[in-house]
């Protein structure tokens, strides 16, 4: 039974993702990203459909998704700005930057601007401490921030000047996987088995030659 919330394209990609793993459940997080790429967040409809795709109860899908910071079960703004305030950034003025951001965007950390353009979040270390303080906008990095450069960033985002660099919220990977052993699931299974058998027999042969 298809629930039909995901677009045909998203559904097809989700099915490809499922085929990548020995067990469908493994595709859960990648598919959640995919659903966010479509809707910006994980809608209840998407959750129900993902559950069906990977063979879980919907409660398990929310249970898993809510464990992870990047997966949103509530709507978020067009741009999710996450400001790192962890130790390295803190030592270089991150809290002052966050405060500035709150004032500038007129929203408390964790909130979304009234017009739905920005969601501001306080992040844990984003692993770009060489250019602290840093923030991410829709998971694209901006470093060496000052209140002034933050303002410019916001202006550029508003004006669409960064559209090429910062895709809409939820878009994680713009490059599609092309390689891979698999063409269709049947072939994949056979390939996998042959490979495993070859390796096993080689291992056996080498074991024999050593003893």
């Amino acid at each position: 039974m298809t629930i039909g919330h995901l677009s045909d394209e998203a559904r097809r990609r989700a099915e490809e993702l499922v085929a990548l793993y020995p067990h469908p459940r493994s595709a859960l997080i990648p598919i959640c990203h995919l659903a966010q790429e479509q809707d910006g967040w994980l809608t209840p409809e998407a959750i129900a459909e993902i559950a069906e795709l990977v063979g879980l109860a919907p409660a398990e899908v929310v249970g898993t998704a809510t464990f992870y910071d990047m997966l949103h079960t509530e709507p978020v703004g067009r741009y999710v700005i996450t400001v790192c305030t962890n130790i390295a950034c803190m030592l270089r003025g991150a809290y002052e930057l966050l405060e500035h951001a709150e004032d500038r965007l007129e929203v408390r950390s964790g909130g979304t601007t009234a017009d739905g353009t920005f969601t501001l979040e306080e992040a844990e270390c984003l692993a770009d401490c060489g250019v602290a303080p840093v923030c991410q906008v829709n998971h694209r990095f901006f470093g060496n921030l000052s209140p002034a450069s933050f303002d410019t960033l916001v202006e550029d985002l508003r004006a669409g000047r960064l559209d090429g660099e910062v895709p809409p919220h939820g878009t994680l990977v713009r490059v599609r996987r092309q390689g891979g052993l698999r063409v269709d699931p049947e072939t994949v299974t056979t390939e996998r088995r042959q490979m495993a058998e070859a390796i096993a027999s080689r291992a056996e042969a080498s074991g024999d030659s050593q003893t």
Binding site: L20, Y21, H23, P24, R25, S26, A27, L28, I29, P30, C32, H33, V54, L56, G63, T64, A65, F67, Y68, D69, M70, L71, E124, L172, V173, R177, G180, L181, R182, E191, R192, M195, A198
Partner: peptide, 29 residues
Amino acid sequence: SLDVVVHPGAGAYICGEETALLESLEGKR
């Protein structure tokens, strides 16, 4: 022959701990 699958995390420090990472890779918390 080798197949390599790139698997994105979703924001949880603990998934760096190797057994949490495996759970996460299995599609769990």
